[in-house]
């Protein structure tokens, strides 16, 4: 009981505290690739602390939704963080929620964000909200299809079980289907984390903004929570990619040394993925809004191919 409790607290803290670091790494890498010095890696932490301390300004049109949504979104993300295995082969709440529940927790956070974006009455919020709901709607089946290509080997939607099965299979999982699904998932990851070429996380210009447009009306503590929640989501989506496609190195047997080793491996995988994301972001330009569905459709086709290959085997 106590162990379970500690596990939940531990993973919650790990997810919440690691998320800004990942953001810092991505930003630093991008800056270096663009020949800039860039802000320190720890800058996202300073930003969040600064936001949390500040007083907030909210719109005179805003309802209780503007005050409630930041807390709701942040806590939903934390809860979702307990459904994804990180260091250990099982998630602390793995018995209470599988992949489907995880996706719908992300969905409820997005729903509240999109709804509250309309609360202040500004057209910027509406623009971001309407675009986000359109694109994420198409990203959701892509995510499911890419995941199904992996889940089909285990016949389960529980992340912990599928990880154990993949790890046990060792390198035998490496087949064309694996590569196709992995590529498909990478596209979904880019869309879900709101990065170039789907969305530009660094600006809220009218032409580019999707997620940032929705955060425009927040300030102070509310903004801090929303930004932090978005970073946690980014971490979770990357962790999901790791769990489904690169689970090797995760601790399957109890033991402190095993956990420490798994922690080091997990950190390494996250850093590598973060750097890859930064590379993609530097190498590509932002797509036109109506080109994005094609990108996601190609992701779905790749996943379907992967599923066909898996079934035919």
């Amino acid at each position: 009981m106590l162990e379970q409790f500690l596990w939940i607290i531990g993973q919650g803290l790990l997810v919440a505290l690691m998320a800004p670091l990942l953001q810092g790494v991505i930003k630093k890498t991008k800056a270096r690739l663009q020949n800039r010095l860039g802000a320190p890696i720890l800058q996202p932490y300073y930003d969040i602390v600064k936001y949390l301390q500040k007083d907030a300004v909210i719109s005179d049109q805003a309802s209780w939704l503007t005050r409630a949504t930041p807390y709701l979104v942040f806590c939903v993300m934390l809860t979702a963080g307990l459904l994804v295995p990180t260091l250990w082969g099982q998630a602390p709440l793995g018995m209470a929620g599988d992949l489907i529940i995880l996706v719908y927790l992300f969905a409820v956070a997005r729903f509240m964000t999109a709804l509250t974006a309309l609360d202040a009455g500004s057209a910027f919020g509406g623009m971001g909200s309407s675009r986000d709901m359109a694109l994420s709607a198409i990203a959701e089946p892509a995510l499911f299809l890419a995941a199904v290509a992996v889940l089909i080997t285990g016949g389960t939607s529980r992340l912990g079980d599928i990880m154990a099965i993949t790890v046990r299979q060792d390198w035998n999982v490496l087949d064309p289907a694996y590569g196709l699904a992995c590529l498909a998932m990478l596209i979904v990851v880019i869309a879900e984390t709101g990065r170039i070429p789907v969305d530009n996380p660094d600006t809220h210009l009218e032409l580019t903004m999707i997620h940032e447009g929705m955060l425009l009306e927040y300030s102070g503590r509310y903004l801090g929570l929303m930004v932090w929640a978005a970073q946690i989501k980014q971490l979770l989506i990357l962790t999901l990619l790791i769990d489904l496609f690169f689970p090797w190195g995760v601790a399957l047997t109890p033991g402190v040394s095993g956990l420490l080793a798994a922690g080091a491996v997990y950190l390494g995988k996250l850093l590598v993925l973060g750097i890859i994301l930064a590379l993609i972001e530097t190498a590509y330009a932002k797509m036109r809004l109506f080109q994005v569905p094609r990108l996601l459709a190609s992701s779905m086709l790749l996943s379907l191919l992967a599923i066909m290959v898996r079934i035919a085997k």
């Binding site: 909200s129 709901m133 089946p141």
Partner: peptide, 24 residues
Amino acid sequence: ALLALTGAFAAGGIVKQFGTAFLA
């Protein structure tokens, strides 16, 4: 996949209806 898409669109539809009628 198509049902997941349907669910996500339903969420978009509700944001549209509720957001336009009740907010701002």
